[in-house]
Design a protein around this nucleic acid. Structure first.
Lengths: 230, 230
DNA sequence: CAAATGTGTCATGGATCTGTCACATCCCGC
DNA sequence: GCGGGATGTGACAGATCCATGACACATTTG
């Protein structure tokens, strides 16, 4: 439900924009690709939670791309929804064999699309978010949008909250400033990389004296990491 | 979420059976009606939690039936999902005004239908506490439609009462203005989001000096929250 | 019918947040 | 130690968000 990234692969920009508009209104992050090559880059860069894949692409068919991605194991269990103008049963079968999880037939409306996406995500993924995260003295209450340290609330700006939430959900792993901007600020936001430093600083300051400030770690030359160890 | 009763109103028996089959597999109880007259009987007899209403019925239109049922107050806040073959935006708007909560366009698949049903139930159901709520110095007497603070009644407008009731039933959770409009004002009401601010303000003013005003909390950039802590 | 009340909208001002910069400090290889 | 790149830190201006009072209109009450 919350904060999932959807990759839309379609060569027609108007369709991509319609999809982006609808999905962002529903709280998804949206990444676009116009062809198979762009799609591969986007998958690597943004690690989407779901892929909307047009049947026809300029450089290859969506079917082939889906099959290739599954074969190359680039996706794990990320679901694929095919977008197609065709309605033949035969195509559906072939698409499902290629690794698609569902179909949407053009033309489609935003409600239908969102219903399908949520149905597929509900099936394939545990909704990971939503429950509270507890790390040492920290408790991140997602629903309440609140962070407690030893049962005392601490105040964070919206950006610091998202940053901490992301970190807490992905511990023991270094993220570059670029990756953090992508995952915390969003894929279509362009700010200076050094901005990350400033928010790291603000997060540390907010956690100062709680015993949790040591979890936010700098990895020189690489980025930042959230970890209880070290 | 389990054991909800769904009434399907459609004159085509195959469709009723398809729906019944799908929904029962998902744990719903299903009641059928073939026309508006049967629908009225079924509503009285079974008090469904949700109604699937075909656009075209032999004795009247689904639109008229929905409107009539709402007007006669036979439904309370039981949500209606319209089933329609038409896709014109005009019809959708008219249907929503008539009291439908969502649309499914024929032909639809079982997955889509269930996704919609669950979405609508999630929105409209779930609250409806019947017993009184006590939170700190507050006692919300649902049936009496009255709020007491330390055994002294305080006056609230109808909107503020619903808002407080909703909040008290869903504490420690942030709701966006949009969500509050949906849950407190109702899914088919269109007012400005800022209106929420004003009613929050009025609620706070009514609670001022009681020690309960601190429960109504602003979460900057996210929405509002009701919580006894912080 | 008039007054009182409830509701939605708006404009305003103040508080807070955010991105950026400049400069200080740190760390590493040499 | 030294130099230079990387990171920490404080300050700042613009952007954003929200509280608040006023107002028009509708509804209810007397």
């Amino acid at each position: 439900m919350t904060d999932r990234t959807v990759l839309i692969v379609d060569d027609e920009k108007p369709i991509r924009e319609m999809v982006e508009f609808s999905l962002e209104r529903s709280g998804f992050r949206v990444v676009e690709a116009g062809d198979a090559a762009e799609a591969r880059v986007a998958i690597t860069d943004h690690q989407p939670d779901l892929i909307l894949l047009d049947w026809m692409l300029p450089d290859t068919s969506g079917l082939d791309l889906a099959r290739a991605l599954r074969r190359e194991n680039m996706l794990g269990d990320v679901p694929i929804i095919m977008l197609t103008a065709r309605t033949e049963e035969e195509d559906k079968v072939r698409g499902l064999e290629a690794g698609a999880d569902d179909y949407v037939t053009k033309p489609f409306g935003p409600r239908e699309l969102i219903a399908r996406i949520q149905a597929v995500l509900r099936r394939s993924g545990g909704d990971e978010a939503e429950e509270n995260l507890e790390i040492g003295p920290l408790r991140i209450e997602i629903a309440a949008h609140r962070v407690m340290v030893n049962d005392n609330p601490i105040h964070l700006g919206a950006t610091e909250f998202r940053l901490l939430k992301f970190f807490a959900g992905h511990p023991d792993r270094v993220y570059t400033r670029e990756q953090l901007l992508d995952r915390v600020w969003g894929p279509n936001v362009y700010v200076e990389e050094r901005t990350v430093d400033v928010h790291i600083r603000r997060l540390r300051k907010a956690l100062d004296g709680t015993g949790a400030e040591r979890f936010v770690q700098t990895v020189r030359g690489a980025g930042y990491r959230f970890s209880t160890r070290e």
